[in-house]
Amino acid sequence: MTKTVTTVLESLNEGLRTAMRKDPNVILLGEDILDPYGGAFKVTKGCSTEFPERVFTTPISEAAMLGIANGLAMSGKRPVVEIMFGDFITLAMDQILNHASKFHWMYNESVDVPLVVRTPMGGRRGYGPTHSQSLEKHFLGIPGLTVIAPNSVIDAGDLLGTAILESTGPILFVEHKLLYTSSIAKIGQGDWVDFSLEVDGAKYPTATLGFSGVTKHHCTIATYGYNLELAKKAAVELAYNDEIFCEIIVLSQLSPFDLAAIEASLKKTKKLVTIEEAGLTLGWGSEVIAQACEGQPDLLVKRVAAIDLPIGNSKALEDVILPSEQKIVQSIREMLKLN
C-alpha cells in the first residue's frame, strides 16, 4: 500500500482492488463505475483503469444487472455488483430473493452463487425519501442470503475482500453513506480513548467495545454499521454524565446472525438496547431482542430506531425521524429510570 488508509471508503476501495488482483474471476458490474468518475461514492475508483476488461458499466437496469451477475456466479465467476443507492435495490429484489438466494438449496445444492451486492444505505445527507433509506431490514432472514454491514472498528476492506473471495452464496454488503467518510477507529485514541475492543474469531467478526478499566458495565447496546458512531457518543455521554457504562456489541454479519457476544454481555448487564436506522416496527432490533429474551427472559429491553415514516428531505425532518445520540441517551436513561 503506497497511501495510508484513513477512512472506511479508502479501506473498501483497497479491499475491492486487492480482491481483483488476487482473483481474475472477480468481475464488477454497476452504473457509472468507470473511471474517471469511479462510481457515485467512489468505492470502485481505479478499478476500471487497472482491470478494464473486468469492469462492466451497465445501463440503468438493476434487475438485469443482478440477473447477469447470478449467471456469472453460477458459471465460475465472482461478480461484485454495485447498486448506486441502496433504495434502488428493490428493482433487483426478485433476482436476489427468487433467484440468487434460492438456487443453491432449490437445486439440491448442485450449484453455488458466489455473488456480492454492495450498496450504500442510510440517511443524514438530505437526499430525501428515495435516496436515504436503510432497506436491509427487508433482506434479513431470507434463506440463502447473507447480509454484511461494515463498521469503523473492523477492517472494512478485509471484510469486503473476504466476502468477494470466499463467499459460496449471495451476500448483500450494506455500506452506510456516512461510514465512507468516517475515520477508521483507533481504539484507545481520539474518540475511542476510553474504549477497549474485543473481536471474536468469526469470518465476519462481531466486536465488543467496553470502557477500559471498568469492571461493571450496566447496559448492553447492540448495533451495526454507522450507528456504532452514535452509540459510541451516547455511551461516552452516559459514562461521563450519569456514570452508566454501556458495553457496545457491533455485528458485521446481520443475517443469519450469532447472538453469542450479545448473550455474553447480557449475562452481566441484563439490559439491552438495540440501535438501527430503519423504521422501528418489525425490524432488526425486534429480532435481536426476541432471540435474547428467549434465552434470558429477565431482561430489560429497548429498541431505538427511526420513526415509521418515509425519510423527509428537510434536515429538520430527517433529524426528527432518524435515531440520534440524544434519543439513545434518553432511551437508556428511561430504561434505567434515571430521569
Binding site: A64, G67, A69, G71, L72, M74, S75
Partner: peptide, 10 residues
C-alpha cells in the same frame, strides 16, 4: 433471461 445472459457473458 438475465441468468442466461450472465452465463453467455461468462
Amino acid at each position: 433471461v438475465p441468468n442466461a445472459a450472465g452465463m453467455a457473458l461468462s
